[in-house]
Design a binder for these strands. Structure first.
Lengths: 256, 256
DNA sequence: TCCGAAAAAAGTGCATGCATTTGAGGCGCA
DNA sequence: TGCGCCTCAAATGCATGCACTTTTTTCGGA
């Protein structure tokens, strides 16, 4: 049912990509909050595709860290812990410093104009809904990354920026982004001037202030995961060298 | 055949993950070279699963940048350009500096012992096949990342390290890794001493030297792909090409 | 012999079906 | 009222089938 097929012959499709983009956007605009359920059926029906495709899209988003996938359970929007959010911001700072370092003094007039136009759009949306402001602010950073012409950098900056957006949903209170807009303008000016050191410092303080505004709670609001709380205690080594598992000292992660 | 199931009772399955791990390993050990074809059927048969699963696994690896996926075409192992390789190393340097910054002076005795054991293993494999040396060297860096206990950092470092391995396959000649092993030992010592600045500098120069040994050819070596050779000529676009090509004559302009 | 077009083969894109698992309600029992 | 067991709807895990696209092979004609 719902044949949704435009029955175009060469239909560029990329249905998976479409779903991913839609969900990403919904997530960063906080239409989908952390913990929101994402059943495959519902997604498939909503986008007019089968569960197979919806599932694939969820897999991709999980690889980006925006979605949590647990076996035999409904996928949910990721709920990063406070520490994970902090880590994401730390990584983001380094990556974006790299971006502006590559960009300083190398932007064309066109590119600078593009950036200015974008910030103007941010300004115009200042009194609109928070969701739009947040999205535009994030897109400014992604725009910068794209100008490096480095696909890898674009991907990582985008991913980590989206993840940081997620943390805004979780820990931040009603956003006030005027200062951020101003900082964006300063960044553009420094980029145009080609002052590498200054632009890197600006980016650093900019993201740092965003982070500290976002992560208002100094203490981890943990309790999310018992294992996490117990981690420091489990670590205490009473000499049991490599007798057993190679990397016994690690408690969690299990990323391997 | 080759059911491969360890038939442990609750068998967490995770067939997709199994395939991903196997392929990643095959890629970094250069058993699968860049450009190698990865047909869904073949993978499915090899791992005893259906195409659906193999396809999903390929999707994940594509998200990590290890595999290239083109519509209606057989998936292939990614063939990063020289510039992409350079970008990957730049990112890697920043990420790993972050790793050792977090780790300096904070490692338990057990962890340091684990690291030393690993480097010993690298040493033992020094005269073995290159593939193993490369894998062990990469795993040393991933091991470090895991000790930060930051899942995000682990993911990014792993990904980018794998991508850098890929570039070894493409641009490097027979590896000689003795010095790298020595540098690993120095890193461990500095980490144990807790000298943050020194350990960051060490990591920087270590990766820099790996990169320059890997990326021996200043210009894209030889087109394994005709399209690649012709790219500069096909580009044209005389209208104001961005003042100055950012740090390279990049031809693709793919971003955006 | 060489070239180009048509047919066959191989491969991907996607939906659907069935088995399995989870989780929520219902029911009995104290 | 509260607690535990059972049952069933809902959702996932995965294989398979069919349509479509790309690649390879075949084959007739110059």
């Amino acid at each position: 049912m719902s044949p949704r097929q435009s029955s175009r012959k060469s239909e560029g499709s990329d249905k998976v990509g479409t779903i991913c983009r839609a969900l990403r956007r919904a997530i960063i605009e906080q239409a989908l909050e952390p913990g929101a359920k994402l059943p495959e059926d519902a997604l498939g029906e909503r986008f007019g595709v089968s569960r197979t495709i919806a599932r694939h899209a969820l897999g991709q988003l999980a690889a980006e860290g925006l979605v949590e996938l647990r076996r035999n359970r409904i996928a949910v929007v990721a709920t990063p812990s406070w520490q994970e959010a902090r880590d994401a911001f730390d990584i983001r700072i380094e990556l974006e410093r790299l971006v502006v370092r590559q960009l300083a003094g190398r932007l064309s007039k066109n590119q600078i104009a593009t950036l200015k136009t974008h910030v103007d759009a941010e300004d115009a949306a200042r009194n609109g809904p928070d969701a739009v402001s947040i999205r535009l602010a994030t897109e400014f950073h992604i725009l910068l990354a794209q100008m490096t012409n480095s696909p890898i950098l674009v991907r990582y900056v985008s991913e980590v920026a989206y993840r940081c957006c997620l943390t805004l949903s979780m820990f931040s209170r009603p956003h006030s982004s005027e200062c951020a807009i101003n900082e964006h303008r300063q960044l553009i000016a420094a980029l145009a001037a080609g002052d590498e050191a200054k632009v890197m410092a600006l980016m650093h303080t900019h993201l740092d202030s965003v982070a500290s505004r976002a992560l208002v709670t100094p203490a981890p609001p943990r309790g999310r995961d018992l294992l996490d709380i117990l981690a420091p205690y489990a670590d205490e080594e009473d000499n049991e060298p490599a007798a057993k598992p190679a990397k016994s000292a690690r408690v969690r992660t299990a990323a391997e």
